[in-house]
Design a protein around this nucleic acid. Structure first.
Lengths: 244, 244
DNA sequence: CGTTTGGTTGATGTATGTCAATATTAGTGG
DNA sequence: CCACTAATATTGACATACATCAACCAAACG
């Protein structure tokens, strides 16, 4: 089965680099060792030293840091096709935790296999490093959002970014996308209280911008959202720089 | 002159990897092409494609992103010994701007020279990538701070982090350190208004925790600051993981 | 000297948090 | 199939941390 369907990761990377058969095969071989992780139970725990990374094939995960006072800040969400814990492999330690938002399916990648794959196909290595840099750019944008955007703009920006990311792996259409996050997830990611998240969502809905209900985000007025959020997608699609 | 004094970068990396003579020499050779940049004028501009990175040898720089509405968010500060624009070299594009906080001295590093150095001395490459990962961890911690800490704790955390970073390159003693930032810089970095930064500093001073005056930070009660900020330095000194 | 830049302080406004109550829904065991 | 519980969502009343506006001061600077 594996070789006939394209994995989300393959799909994502293919947008930026035309991968050869050999590279596709190497990528495919990283997808042995599929595992299921149940919702809500940490996969990797803050401070734990770990030598494995994962490629997420189905479901969503969030990576977060816990504060001494018990509050948590979600740093990023991982969606199908995303790497998880790439830095843990390089640094041999993880400075935040990973928790599946729902039951998920992920392929465990041992550091040795990853390094072997990199050695075999430098272009693949480049593509994956590109993806990692893109993740970092998202964290920076996230920082800017929390620091300098009000709650409405922050929410709009966040949901637009998700749309763009999901579209890349075929999980969004022109109307919207499935989103399994609770309002508590949104609150922890955006630095808001859950109550205020609810109010912001109502506000956006009443203004005819978007609807988030029953796990589905429906975009009503894309242009107005982009304007409200000050959304500039250029940090997401740095097209072509690494194609050489 | 170059070979008799140790650069801040050398000093920083030496804490984590015992560098050989050859490696020290390679590192030293990256410090040709010294240049002076005047305070306040952007070195690299958002969106500009650039193939050069810099090693900061004297002075402070801030990297920031501008919002469409004119506000700015400072993502990080660079201090002597820090790399500047390492990602620009890898991605061939810069998604934020760099502005010297004061007149600075930096060594320009061409991407070719950097890649050559990496090829010659893998251990050096590892050490520099470690430093880059550490920078990323700082951005994450910064995100957590803005999202989940109140203004006092945020300020305390920020100034403690700076102390730890400066100590590593010999720019802090047990009392405190020189800090050329204005309250406007602090405001843009911490997501606060300049007025409130002033009030927070007064508050910390009146509580006998620290004094920030005339470009000098004096720490009065380190323990109390650590407690207030929920400061856990483990994200800064991931000692040893890469020594192999 | 006037001008600019950075700092300081008070009065007031507002975005967002906190608390509390009530739906709504999904799951769970009987 | 039904009660029971636990999540999640929703809404209002109230509290507060922080922003904004405005004025003033001190030092640096041309």
């Amino acid at each position: 089965m594996r070789s006939t369907e394209t994995s989300p990761l393959t799909r994502k990377l293919s947008v930026f680099v035309a991968l050869s058969y050999v590279e596709l095969a190497v990528l495919d071989r990283l997808h042995t060792r599929r595992r299921i992780f149940p919702a809500g139970r940490d996969m990797v725990h803050q401070g734990q030293s770990s030598r494995a990374a994962f490629i997420l094939s189905a479901g969503w995960v969030c990576s977060y840091k816990l504060q001494p006072d018990g509050t948590r800040q979600i740093v990023d969400f991982q969606i199908p096709g995303d790497f998880l814990g790439l830095r843990s492999v390089l640094l041999r330690t993880s400075d935040h935790s990973f928790e599946p938002v729902m039951d998920i399916e992920a392929s465990e990648v041992l550091d040795k296999d990853l390094l072997d794959a990199f050695a075999q196909t430098p272009r693949l290595a480049t593509a994956i490093l590109w993806a990692a840099s893109r993740d970092e750019a998202m964290v920076v944008e996230h920082l800017v959002g929390i620091g300098r955007r009000d709650a409405d703009a922050r929410m709009a920006h966040f949901l637009l970014e998700l749309e763009a990311r999901l579209a890349l792996v075929g999980l969004a259409d022109s109307n919207g996308y499935e989103c399994p996050l609770t309002q508590y997830h949104l609150a922890d990611a955006l630095g808001l209280s859950a109550v205020h998240v609810n109010r912001v969502l109502r506000h956006l809905r009443e203004d005819g911008l978007l609807t988030f209900r029953d796990g589905h985000v429906t975009i009503h007025d894309h242009d107005a959202l982009v304007k409200l959020a000050g959304f500039d997608a250029s940090y997401l699609d740095q097209t072509g720089p690494l194609l050489t």
